[in-house]
Design a protein around this nucleic acid. Structure first.
Length: 466
RNA sequence: GGCGCGGUAGCCAAGUGGUAAGGCAGAGGUCUGCAAAACCUUUAUUCGCCGGUUCAAUUCCGGCCCGCGCCUCCA
């Protein structure tokens, strides 16, 4: 069965085939680094990570570019307020973003591109648009004239002709001929950082960076372009206009948009006090894996209601999977191979893959995995599961973890080493043999205080870190 | 108003024209020196409401109610 993805452009599920297999050329809209990235942003980035990993699972070779928007109004305001250079100001947040992404185990795109390092290319793009008659100048700034691109609005299905100049306050504070037009190049104003270019002193508009960098690194036509659903309009619409007016080719073949995350049923906003960065959530003691699990367990086209109760549930759900993995490692099973068990594992894998192929139905895929875990646990309890089934069982679990990546606990600093734990356990076992339960319970409590949980199972003692 | 999404057990959530996956929580059980941990079993006569199509609808169609997003800051 082929991978099917929901294309915003067609509003339909489509079979996915890249233009030049096995390479998939993908561009994702990255963060604007004017602050710490919040968990809503990470919902989208986590989706992109799942997409990446599933494409790789399906044998595709990724050529993925993500941008870092490091010049923009809010950045300029922040940098000027702190009396820092643009670079000084953005570097701290870019570093934090990369660190947070690593914490959430988001795979790095093949290339991360900063807007400020592509000014020349953007200038060239704007010049090309000007040559094509798509621009005009107003008060030194250069605008894209939407009237020159008849297909404008097709992606978002918005009736742009209904938007009239003056219908709303012009947030850009610049004069435009038509409210629908958008800025390509902003003229420099007093004290603001800028670049001296053939276009005059100034800085690029937001939209031009993405289409320019995407085309530079991935060619005229990309296979996939993704971002949050709010970027559909106007950002992606504008990217299409820019790119296609220059290349006269289709800019993107598959547009994928992630729905938003809401918090406790409400839109996340600073005024409601439900605005969280990843760091905020980690400080409450939640593991990165639980956050990653929660962010990816709900299929990307559904709204994700982020609650702390659900994070607790995620921690427990991950424990269940880890316990199963531990049982596969440490369990003692009779020799041979049970064909029924083998068949069930194969069926579970098919279900897992079918769900993932179905527009990345992560909830369904997780369902298949948990069902497999329960069935296999039961087979182990009944003695039906054999040593010869271990390899298949492990293979499926690791296939799952290649995508979800939650099984390995994030190490904690300052905890006991494995050897120290083993030594204490051995001492406890001696105490138990001597029926010195006082001492054995002491050791158990001591380990528990260090986050080490002992399990006395029928196959012997085993332990894990909490 | 325009465009779009959703309403499935206490919570999260998948799903199909033939009678409801999975996770968490709850209940029961197994194991154990006691525990803990773990594992197993169990929990929706029902899928927002009302009509219609059909032998059969949660799943298709129409209407209604409710919640939400976007409509040039925004993942």
């Amino acid at each position: 069965m082929a991978l099917r993805l929901f294309n915003t452009a067609s509003q339909q599920l489509e079979d996915f085939t890249p233009l030049n297999p096995p390479t998939v050329r993908m561009y994702t809209c990255g963060p604007t680094v004017y602050n710490y990235v919040h968990i809503g942003n990470f919902r989208t980035f986590a989706f992109q990570d799942i997409l990446r990993r599933w494409l790789a699972y399906r044998g595709y070779h990724l050529d993925h570019v993500m941008n870092i928007t490091d010049v923009e109004d809010k950045i300029i305001r922040g940098a000027m307020a702190e009396n820092k250079s643009l670079r000084e100001y953005t570097q701290q947040y870019e570093d934090a973003f990369l660190e947070d992404s690593a914490t959430l185990r988001l795979q790095k795109p093949e290339r991360i591109a900063r807007a400020t390092e592509h000014i020349d290319e953007m200038v060239e793009a704007i010049q090309a648009l000007t040559e094509g008659g798509h621009t005009y100048v107003s008060e030194g700034s250069i605008y894209f004239r939407i009237a020159t691109f008849p297909r404008y609005g097709r992606l978002s299905r918005l009736h742009v002709e209904g938007m009239q100049a003056g219908a709303r306050v012009d947030m850009d504070e610049y004069e435009k001929d038509d409210a629908r037009d958008f800025v390509l190049w902003k003229a420099q104003r007093d004290g603001e950082p800028g670049w001296d270019t053939p276009l005059g002193p100034g800085r690029p508009g937001w939209h031009i960076e993405c289409s320019t960098m995407a085309n530079k690194y991935l060619g005229d036509t990309l296979d996939i372009h993704t971002g949050g659903i709010d970027l559909t309009f106007p950002h992606h619409e504008n990217e299409i206009a820019q790119a296609e007016c220059i290349s006269h080719k289709q800019f993107v073949r598959y547009w994928l948009h992630a729905e938003h995350l809401i918090v406790e049923g409400q839109k996340m906003s600073k005024s409601l006090g439900n605005f969280y960065t990843l760091r905020d959530v980690l400080q409450r003691g939640y593991s990165p894996e639980a956050i990653r699990y929660r962010l990816t367990a709900v299929p990307y086209r559904n709204k994700l209601n982020f609650t702390f109760a659900d994070l607790d549930a995620a921690e427990t759900a991950i424990d269940r999977l880890r316990n199963f993995a531990l049982r596969l490692e440490t369990g003692k099973f009779k020799e041979g191979k049970c064909p029924e068990v083998e068949a069930r594992i194969a069926r579970a894998r098919t279900e897992f893959e079918t769900d993932m192929d179905d527009d990345l139905n992560t909830a369904g895929a997780l369902g298949a995995i948990f069902e497999y875990v329960r069935e296999t646990n039961a087979a182990m309890d009944s003695g039906e599961f054999c040593a010869g089934n271990v390899e298949d069982a492990k293979a499926l679990l690791s296939a799952f973890d290649r995508i979800f990546d939650v099984l390995t606990p994030t190490p904690r600093e300052g905890s006991l080493s494995d050897a120290e734990v083993d030594a204490l356990i051995a001492e406890r076992q001696r105490a138990r043999m001597e029926r010195n339960f006082k001492r054995s319970d002491e050791i158990r409590d001591e380990l528990a205080a260090q986050g080490i949980i002992l399990e006395d199972t029928r196959d012997g003692i085993r332990w894990k870190r909490k």
